[in-house]
Computed example of a mutant assay.
Amino acid sequence: MPDTVPDDTHQQTQATGEIVLRHHLCWKRRDLDGVMAHYHPDIQYNDFFQNRVVGFAELREYLRASMPRDQAMRPTVSRLGLSPQQLSYLANDLQQYFQHQQPYLDPELDLQRVAKECGYSRNQISYLLNQVLGQSFYRYVNQARLQHLLATLDKATPPIRIDELAFAAGFNSLSAFYSCFRQHTGLSPKAYVKQISLRARAQDAP
């Protein structure tokens, strides 16, 4: 794999998550106009299960036929006490909590504490993460830790001790850190740090 940093780095993670959430909530509400707003009119979309290409002109009816019936998700959401609008509030509350309180810096952080400090139940937080955002609690936390570490790296000056920064960001396992880092950046921490050093030298060169 080439030693280059992908364009969609941690700065775009939050925006991507917000778009995915808006699309999910529109889908659950059967808001066809809201769902269509996320598709580009000049792009053809592939349904690999049916082995067909869907153009924008037929995309609306294709999506309408694919949408869940109103009853499909109602029991689950009702049991959790969350409407689609409340799910949106929950997502925002969780995001604000992580941004401002930075609980992920604690390597012992668990779901019970996050739920308590956000004012929701464990099941409600789990539903948002698993069913809406499509990730586990620990993956969500480790991504927040990684974003914190990458922001720190952008300001760091050599020598950079990446393992120390990982522990300072809340990772309690280097294996988990290395795995998360490579999945997110496509690079090993060593290769990423090398790129930072090369950029710094290029900027300092006359």
Rank of each mutant, 00 (worst) to 15 (best):
F49H: 00
Q124N: 14
E58V: 14
D70Q: 13
Q96W: 02
R29C: 04
A37D: 02
R30L: 01
A151Q: 14
Y138T: 12
V141P: 08
V53R: 06
Q147P: 04
L32W: 00
V132Y: 01
S88V: 06
Y97F: 04
N92E: 13
R145I: 06
S136H: 03
Y62A: 00
T152C: 10
A72F: 15
Q44H: 11
M67N: 07
E61S: 13
D70R: 14
D154W: 15
K28S: 06
V54K: 11
L25H: 03
Q102G: 09
N123A: 15
Y62N: 01
V53L: 11
S136E: 04
Q44D: 14
G34W: 01
T76F: 12
Q96Y: 03
Y104E: 04
L25S: 08
R69Y: 12
Y45K: 05
L63G: 09
D33M: 07
A151Y: 13
V54C: 10
G34N: 03
D106F: 05
Q147V: 03
H38F: 03
N130M: 09
R22Y: 05
N142T: 01
Y127A: 03
T157Y: 11
M67V: 12
K155V: 09
L90P: 04
A144N: 06
P84F: 10
S78R: 11
P103Q: 09
H40G: 04
F137L: 04
N142G: 10
L21E: 02
N51K: 15
M67A: 08
